[in-house]
């Protein structure tokens, strides 16, 4: 390899030093490879790991998506899972799905060129130019009606994307952020997450919901949605106060969905 191959290494070293400056809220656990950062974080949470424990792996052997789908996890992309232990009712936990989405969205806004069109697809995927660049999956454990812990799992395509899987995909490098590093995105995420979490703790869900709606993909437009039981088409009317998707399916009939994949959108 020529001299050009050295440049990314120097870049990587610099970014690694940045990670030692993560906010004291976080306890970083860095792994070369793991089955799934969510699985590892859940194991640690069950063993009593503190809030702020952040499991980061260079690659995953069994990365997880929603409903058993695989999250393809080669080296070069970001895979991390954060343990949270807020003192809240379990019914409030889904709000953190949007806190995480907004934090990842902010981190990617820092990283991508200003001209990039970045959106959030319900509930918490991040899209660039209509292609998925990041996904989030959360897992909770309850103690009675209270949340005991929550694992927020995040995957960001930095160097590569899986191409056409269930939804068109892209990566930071493919979207114009050619120098973006895994470590840089991780640092931006942790900074942003702290801020959004503080806002949510102080002011509740409203400002997070507002920010989400501002950058929602296909809000007011026709979308196609796949639930476990049916395929629906309709107008994405709103995000309700709990974060559920409000879909108008014709003749004024509204469906309020708590779990589904938005598989197509028809932005005007």
């Amino acid at each position: 390899m020529g001299v050009s191959a050295l440049a990314p290494r120097i870049f990587l070293k610099k970014r690694m030093e940045d990670l030692s400056q993560l906010d004291e809220l976080y306890h970083l656990i860095s792994l070369d490879v793991v089955d799934s950062t969510n699985e590892e974080a859940a194991r640690l949470a069950r063993e009593g790991a503190p809030a702020g424990t952040l499991v980061w792996a260079k690659s995953q052997l069994g990365g997880k998506g929603r409903r058993g789908r695989e999250w393809i996890s080669p080296g070069g992309n970001l895979y991390m899972s954060l343990i949270l232990r807020p003192n809240i009712l379990l019914t409030q936990a889904p709000q953190l799905s949007f806190v995480a989405a907004v934090a990842v969205f902010n981190a990617l806004c820092f990283t991508l060129p200003q001209t990039a069109k970045i959106h959030m697809k319900w509930p918490n995927d991040i899209l660039v130019e209509g292609k998925k660049i990041a996904g989030i999956l959360l897992e909770s454990s309850a103690q009675g009606d209270m949340l005991e812990w929550l694992v927020v799992g995040i995957g960001v395509n930095v160097a590569s994307s899986p191409g056409k899987v269930s939804f068109p995909s892209t990566s930071l490098h493919e979207s114009g952020a050619t120098h973006a590093s895994v470590e840089g995105v991780l640092k931006h995420f942790t900074d942003s997450f702290k801020r959004v979490m503080e806002e949510w703790s102080g002011e509740g869900f409203a400002p997070v919901r507002k920010r989400w709606l501002e950058f929602a993909w296909c809000l007011g437009e026709k979308i196609e949605v796949k639930t476990e039981q049916e395929l629906l088409q309709g107008r994405f009317a709103d995000l309700d106060e709990s974060g559920a998707l409000v879909l108008e399916t014709g003749k004024g009939e509204k469906r309020v969905l708590t779990a589904a994949d938005v598989i197509m959108g028809f932005p005007t």
């Binding site: 889904p94 799905s97 949007f98 509930p123 959360l138 897992e139 476990e228 974060g243 708590t258 779990a259």
Partner: peptide
Amino acid sequence: VEAMKTMNPIPAPHGGKVMRILVENGDP
């Protein structure tokens, strides 16, 4: 039980025999 991509596993509150399952897969 899933809500907004937050997966909430429901644990058996006690040991015993499953007498009835009252929901279909994917029911709200």
